[in-house]
Design a protein around this nucleic acid. Structure first.
Lengths: 100, 100
DNA sequence: TCAATTAGTCAGAAAAAGTTGACTATGGGA
DNA sequence: TCCCATAGTCAACTTTTTCTGACTAATTGA
């Protein structure tokens, strides 16, 4: 996954496709539709995944503004990742991808 | 890019995203909207590209049914890659990706 | 016949992406 | 105080993807 560099993108859809197609990302997006995501739950829930990759995927999705990272100051102080407004704009795109 | 294997895909959009997001593929798709593609023209036209990668991308897009490979029996006998019916179903998806 | 254009293939190298296991750091509960 | 859960980071390694340069093979024009 590495660092994100805004390259000399010729095709407008290219950048977005790149961001959405990293390993685990489509799955994370899909799970985020059902409710907030938590790191350790994902690690158990998403078969075959690993800390590093999940952390990187979440970080990038947050950096690109598709997810919000929220610190929940409750009983067991923790972090939740929720779909942002920008993230919700992708819902119809995913819906369209699914019917093809 | 390697071989395509239908993996245990959990998210329906995942496979499609993988196919569309290979390097050069979004650009090839976009160029195919304007008319038939020819190998050597692409090689000159698409900056930074190379034979191997273009050949692989075209082959996969044909295998997945997004492009048709047509042998043109004319003056300089050659090959054209054109958007297939299936390929055209992607047009609205790309349009939607572009406005985000 | 020679040379150019067509459209590739192949093997190996390099670069990017993903995985592993060890480690860090904070907050509670017993 | 010790231990567990939270949510990570880091360096090294493996795997996958992409690129390079050399080569093949058919067609065509001079």
């Amino acid at each position: 996954m590495g660092e994100i560099q805004k390259s000399d993108t010729v095709c407008p859809a290219e950048e977005l496709l790149k961001i959405l197609s990293g390993k685990w990302k489509p799955q994370l997006f899909r799970l985020a539709l059902d409710g907030p995501l938590r790191f350790n739950s994902l690690l158990r829930q998403v078969e075959g995944s690993n800390k590093q990759s999940l952390a990187m995927a979440l970080k990038e999705l947050v950096e690109e503004g598709y997810l919000d990272k929220v610190i929940i100051k409750a009983k067991p102080l923790h972090i939740e990742y929720t779909l942002s407004a920008r993230g919700r704009t992708l819902i119809p795109v995913f819906k369209q991808l699914e019917i093809l």
